[in-house]
Computed example of a mutant assay.
Amino acid sequence: MLKYVNHDIVFQEFPDEVTLAINLSRCPCACPGCHSTYLWGDNGEELTLDRLRALAEHYGTTITCLSLMGGDNDPRSVLELLATIREEYPHLHTGWYSGRDQLPLFFSEYTPPTYVKIGAWRAELGPLSSPSTNQRLYRYDEDGESEDITHRFWKK
């Protein structure tokens, strides 16, 4: 089961997107130095497909992307929800921020989100904007082919 604590419109999580970022709780990663430790606990309300649809409808065309931030406690539910949103709202891109270093083995069973960020937070390596980061952001096309676009965060 997925639970969400809050959501916000953000502009920096995915290149060229206005994103509705939904913060999921119950994070099992517990990365040292995490800036969102409040997401480790079992708090918030259940994120159902109906609730996700209601959020997508509420924001309508003011957003270009809907993203789940976390959800590593139940990656199947993350992938199912995002695949449904991608199918029902073809104008929306979708994204998933995972704190895991690898995608789950069953990832290829689902229509992939448009964007997937993987990688645990490691303070000594920095965030996506650091060329030394261990985190990676991938963009997936409709055929499931991916491209590492992490470099788009690096200042030139």
Rank of each mutant, 00 (worst) to 15 (best):
V116G: 01
V116W: 04
N73E: 13
T62F: 12
G44V: 06
G44F: 13
G41I: 02
G71W: 01
G41F: 04
P75N: 01
P90G: 10
A21L: 15
A56Q: 09
Y115K: 05
P113L: 11
L24H: 03
P112N: 09
D42S: 12
S108Y: 08
D74E: 11
L47M: 07
H35V: 12
W96C: 02
H93M: 12
Y59T: 07
G33A: 01
D74T: 11
E46A: 13
A30W: 04
Q12I: 13
T37V: 14
G44N: 01
T114R: 07
Y89W: 14
Y59G: 03
T61Q: 11
A83C: 01
G70V: 08
L52N: 06
I63C: 12
L20H: 02
S108E: 11
P104M: 10
Q102T: 15
Y97M: 05
L103I: 05
A56S: 15
G70C: 06
H91V: 02
L66F: 01
L68E: 04
L79H: 10
H35F: 13
L24R: 07
G99F: 01
L20Y: 00
E46N: 11
V116M: 00
A56H: 05
P28D: 01
P32S: 14
T111W: 03
W96E: 03
C29H: 10
A30N: 11
